[in-house]
Amino acid sequence: MIEVRDLRVRYGTRTVAHVPELDVGAGECVAVVGESGSGKSTTLMALLGLTEGAEVSGYVRVCGVDVLTAPARRLREIRGARVALVMQSPEAALSPTTRLGVLMRRALVLHGVDAGERAMAEAVEAVLLDPAILRRYPHEVSGGQAQRFAIALALALGAEVVLADEPTSALDVTVQAEVVGVLRRLRAERGLALLLVSHDLALVSTIADRVLVMKDGEVVESGPAARVLAEPSHPYTRELLEALP
């Protein structure tokens, strides 16, 4: 579903992200870990072709579309409909003047997907939300509910790939567990390909198959999650692991 070779994102002369190789197949979960400013989120945005002002080179193929050469219209077609982004601040990612149901209906209509009440209710029920949430404004729901709504939106659109940018960092511990549970279940049931960006190694260890560790824009270590987290070969990975509470 995601195939990346020698991806470089530069602002001026500065390379902010360099990923030599990254593959995520259906039903797989790959985590990109590292501290703030290590290039994780930039890598995610590059996969969506949304790195404005940056010079991007390499080869990026997402859902069969060559992101770096595809026309803007083709990219808009896959954004949301096939590749969904779950953002760090779930409430901030929802327009404050729009009810959740209106937001979902507009997105479904935009991509030509069934926008009926039943379909929308099923999507939110799949992430264990009460369909009454569709009548609410973003400020009327909790962070966990907003995050699950974002996942429901991805499901309703039929996304095959979910890019999750620190999906639990803005949530409290119990809500984190809810969201991780939903992601894990959907991955197993629907074969979602999940690319998770996080600095939370505890979360990564519970869900990821493979891990890429980034520092200062470069991938310093990668491999199966169990191996990287149990026997890190790079000093930076060891540092991250030692920083775990």
Binding site: L48, L50, L75, R76, E77, I78, R79, G80, A81, A84, L85, M87, Q88, S89, A92, A93, L94, S95, P96, R106, A107, L110, H111, A150, L153, L157
Partner: peptide
Amino acid sequence: RPYVDAARCLGVP
């Protein structure tokens, strides 16, 4: 704001 980025990520023109 993140919701504008989110809209663009949804493919909204």
